[in-house]
């Protein structure tokens, strides 16, 4: 399992990302200098810098480091999820089994055993979790407990596992950006979409989409996000992906919509659990799940779009 192939296009993209981050951070400090209230924005940027630097460092060396890094993220997210939901005392062993599924799942990802990656959580853990739970013979809240634990595994281990699944895509499919290029493409698009939806909503927002789930989301913000993400997708497709211009426009729109739904789904869960943030790991953002909410939907979606388009997937 060798090193990760980084193309020149990809390196250039990462450098541009860093430059734009520096410009945005400098802008935040200028606002602060002009006595505007930007402290929340600055804490957000600081957390964001740490995330970006850790990500770059993890993907610079080899596959093992990158997969291990994603595994840590997955563990932190699952821990956050289990701390947020109500759990039964008798399910302690079940939760331990759920945690132990993480290294197994990432072993499949590391070795590129894609079929087992596809099946392990959705099928085997779907059987193993209730199997372990029924042994304790506590029937009160049984279905609810099964369902919440499996939901946590699907979001925090299976979906986040797709970050590492991109490394199994053969580099020949994507001469421009390599396998990591596809991952960078989807992450850039998702984060850009989050930011643009927020920005358009802040400036033009009037008509609420989901007043009960997430009162900050507006139709203006949504359409602003969809179109600007589509535009960014069309700008980046030649640099990072093997897609055609039409495909990249379609996927840009799809990612924006999926990202929006990922975001409000996590909002609905937080509202159900009665918490504002899923955690406090990232100052300014909240928990790690608050940051990953839209990626839980977009990253697997884009992976399967690529897999479908280029006939990769279940057979290799």
């Amino acid at each position: 399992m060798g090193s990760i192939y980084l193309t020149d296009n990809l390196k250039m993209c990462v450098i541009i990302l860093y430059i734009s981050l520096i410009i945005i951070t400098a802008g935040a400090y200028v606002l602060k200098f002009l006595k505007k209230d930007a402290s929340n924005f600055i804490t957000r940027m600081k957390s964001f810098w740490i995330i970006v630097i850790l990500f770059t460092a993890a993907f610079m060396f080899n596959k093992a480091a990158a997969v291990f890094f994603i595994m840590l993220i997955s563990y932190l997210a699952l821990k956050e999820f289990f701390s947020m939901i109500p759990t039964r005392r008798c399910d302690r062993r079940v939760l331990l089994w759920a945690y132990l599924s993480i290294p197994i799942q990432f072993y499949f990802l590391y070795t590129g055993w894609i079929v087992m990656f596809y099946l392990f959580i959705p099928l085997y853990l779907f059987i193993l979790i209730p199997l372990r739970m029924v042994v304790t013979e506590e029937t009160e809240g049984f279905l609810k407990s099964c369902a919440t634990i499996h939901w946590g595994l699907m979001t925090c281990v299976y979906s986040i596992g797709y970050f590492a699944a991109y490394l199994s895509i053969p580099n020949e499919i994507n001469p421009a950006g390599g396998s990591v290029g596809l991952l960078v493409f989807i992450l850039l698009l998702t984060i850009f979409n989050d930011f643009m939806q927020y920005l358009f909503g802040k400036i033009f927002g009037k008509h609420k989409i989901t007043p009960k789930v997430s009162p900050n989301k507006t139709w203006e913000g949504f359409w602003g996000g969809v179109f600007s993400t589509g535009i960014l997708s069309v700008c980046l497709y030649q640099i990072l992906t093997p897609l055609s211009i039409l495909q990249s426009a379609i996927i840009g729109f799809c990612i924006a919509i999926a990202g929006f739904f990922g975001d409000i789904t996590m909002s609905a869960i937080k509202r159900d659990m009665g918490v504002k943030d899923t955690g406090a790991l990232l100052p300014g953002h909240g928990g790690i799940l608050d940051r990953l909410d839209s990626m839980i939907f977009t990253v697997p979606l884009f992976f399967h779009f690529i897999a479908y388009d280029f006939n990769i997937g279940i057979l290799n």
Partner: peptide, 15 residues
């Protein structure tokens, strides 16, 4: 109390 309750002997991570 969820990580390591009085009457149990193994640790389950929680925040």
């Amino acid at each position: 109390d969820k990580i390591l309750p009085k009457l149990d002997s193994f640790i389950v991570p929680f925040i």
